[in-house]
Every structure is written in structure tokens, then in C-alpha cells.
């Protein structure tokens, strides 16, 4: 019973984060997308990372939901098929692998977040670079885009850590 309600929370949260990414980017573009520093919100990546890192005994089909989120990103935001479709399952795989070797606490979560928030833009930049879909050089990518993006998302993760952890812990206790 509890597991199914947790599952619904996960699905609704995922849908919300997918659209929040685009909406936050749009509403706060003047503050986030500056030419000297670009911070991109990665709420979807954060949600997938936390869900895969915190889930304990539940067996949610997280991979399939990651693929779904990837399809929406590719179609609605990017316009190129196959970029986020590949990245989001990789994010889930990363968090699940690290869960086996790391304890679940704040610092480990921030570390997983650090890796996830780096890999997501790195892979999407590489894919677009390959097809000529971006003119950003690697140096610009590292300094202008990656560093501020990491900072922004680590702060969001720090704020959301307690509520998200509680959500999954409560799920485990009831079960």
C-alpha cells in the first residue's frame, strides 16, 4: 500500500521536475543565463539521483521512468532525439551503483549529486558537439557553464536533502 503511494509521489514529482526545469529556466533566464556565468537548473537529474540513491528495498521501474523523462526532454526542449533518452538512465545507473559502496548521508548525497550534475551536462554537451549543435568550446563549457550549474544544483540539493530523505525513510518504516 505504502510502496504504491511512494511510487505515485515519485511519478508526480518526476513530471513536476521535468516541467519545472523549463519553466524556471524561462522565468529566471535574466538571472541564470548570463554571458559570464550560466547556471542551469537540473531538477529532473536531482529527482532521479535522489530516488535511486535513497530507495531501499523498493523496486521501482526507475529506468523506464528515466527513459520517459528523457523522451520528454528530447522532444519538448532539445528537439534532438536520443540525448537525454540516454543520459537519464545513466544517471539512475550511477546512483544505484554508488549506493552499494557509499553510506546514505548528507555528504555522500552531495558527492553523488556532484557526479550526476557534472555527467548530465558533460554528456549532453558531447552529444551536441558531435552533431554540430553547439558552438560552446570545452574551456567555456567548464568555466562559464559547468561551475555555476554545479553550485546552483548543489545548493538546491542541500535544501531538498532532508525532506526527500524523510519521504523515503517514512516509506521504509511503514513498509
Amino acid at each position: 500500500m505504502r510502496e504504491s503511494s511512494l511510487r505515485w509521489t515519485f511519478i508526480i514529482g518526476l513530471l513536476l521536475s521535468v516541467f519545472l526545469d523549463g519553466t524556471i529556466s524561462q522565468q529566471f533566464a535574466g538571472h541564470l543565463f548570463r554571458s559570464s556565468a550560466t547556471a542551469v537548473p537540473e531538477i529532473t537529474t536531482l529527482w532521479l539521483l535522489c530516488a535511486s540513491f535513497f530507495e531501499d528495498q523498493y523496486h521501482m521501474p526507475t529506468y523506464w521512468f528515466a527513459v520517459f523523462a528523457g523522451v520528454v526532454f528530447d522532444l519538448f526542449y532539445s528537439g534532438y532525439w536520443g540525448v537525454y533518452l540516454f543520459i537519464f538512465p545513466v544517471i539512475v545507473w550511477l546512483a544505484r551503483t554508488l549506493r552499494q559502496v557509499l553510506p546514505v548521508n548528507l555528504f555522500a548525497t552531495l558527492l553523488v549529486g556532484f557526479l550526476g550534475f557534472t555527467i548530465q551536462p558533460l554528456l549532453s554537451w558531447s552529444a551536441l558537439q558531435m552533431i554540430g549543435g553547439t558552438g560552446t568550446s570545452f574551456a567555456d563549457f567548464m568555466v562559464i557553464d559547468l561551475a555555476p550549474t554545479l553550485a546552483l544544483n548543489e545548493v538546491i540539493l542541500l535544501i531538498l536533502y532532508v525532506p526527500l530523505r524523510q519521504l523515503y525513510l517514512r516509506g521504509a518504516r511503514v513498509q
Binding site: 523549463g22 529556466s25 524561462q26 543565463f33 551536462p121 560552446t136
Partner: peptide, 10 residues
Amino acid sequence: VIARTPSAWQ
């Protein structure tokens, strides 16, 4: 405008 691509290079 309903959304902006959440990406620094698109």
C-alpha cells in the same frame, strides 16, 4: 513563451 530549454548551449 511557455518554456526555455534547460541547457547552457541550446
